[in-house]
């Protein structure tokens, strides 16, 4: 499926992982480090500011929440993720506001050395978003897709280098 969507790597929730063997283009998302993390590439994901600590790789942010708390807790190289799935349910006015907030989070990430990540937030195969669609949203908020993909690749590569040396399929 990732090939169809033109995405090199897809992150999936560790609860949904049915494969017994690590797959090259999959990164598991987990709330804490489980034993399977020794064999799989993984990211520690949090959506609660209270549980955000130095071990967290990715913080799933609600664009409408206040950013003051994140500012004080965000460490360098923290991934700040925004889910598109959330915006699907909003009315047009709120989508406009959502896009404005996404742009402000991008700027926040830039000034705080965090990695801005736009994700589909998909819970089923039909909710996935293709690479080309991501690019259209990025263009709309004034982010260069080329820079975005380069930065996210570099960020994942850094994580990979530190942790997943032994996690080979």
């Amino acid at each position: 499926m990732s090939k169809i969507l033109d995405l090199d790597i897809i992150g999936i929730d560790s609860n949904y992982s049915t494969n017994t063997e690590p797959v090259e283009n999959i990164i598991l998302r987990m709330d804490k480090k489980y034993s399977m993390a020794d064999y799989y590439p993984y990211l520690i994901v949090s959506d609660n500011i209270k549980t955000l600590d130095g071990k967290t790789d990715l913080f799933l942010i609600d664009p409408f929440q206040r950013k003051d708390a994140i500012k004080s807790k965000a460490k360098r190289a923290l991934g700040v993720e925004i889910s598109i799935a959330f915006a699907k349910k909003l009315n047009a006015t709120m989508v406009g506001k959502w896009l404005k907030e996404v742009k402000s989070i991008y700027e926040f990430c830039k000034s705080n050395d965090c990695q801005f990540i736009l994700s589909s937030g998909a819970r089923s195969i039909n909710e996935l978003v293709s690479a080309r669609s991501f690019e259209s949203i990025l263009k709309l908020i004034g982010v260069s897709p080329k820079n975005y993909w380069n930065e996210i690749t570099e960020w994942l590569f850094t994580k990979n280098k530190v942790r997943w040396v032994y996690a080979k399929p």
């Binding site: 169809i4 969507l5 598109i84 799935a85 915006a87 699907k88 349910k89 909003l90 989508v95 998909a122 089923s124 195969i125 039909n126 909710e127 996935l128 978003v129 293709s130 080309r132 669609s133 991501f134 259209s136 949203i137 263009k139 709309l140």
Partner: peptide
């Protein structure tokens, strides 16, 4: 681009294959 954004932000969900 406008069309792809609309598709991504529509409920029910659609995926461009």
């Amino acid at each position: 681009d406008y069309f792809l954004v609309s598709l991504s932000l529509t409920q029910p969900s659609f995926t461009v294959v």
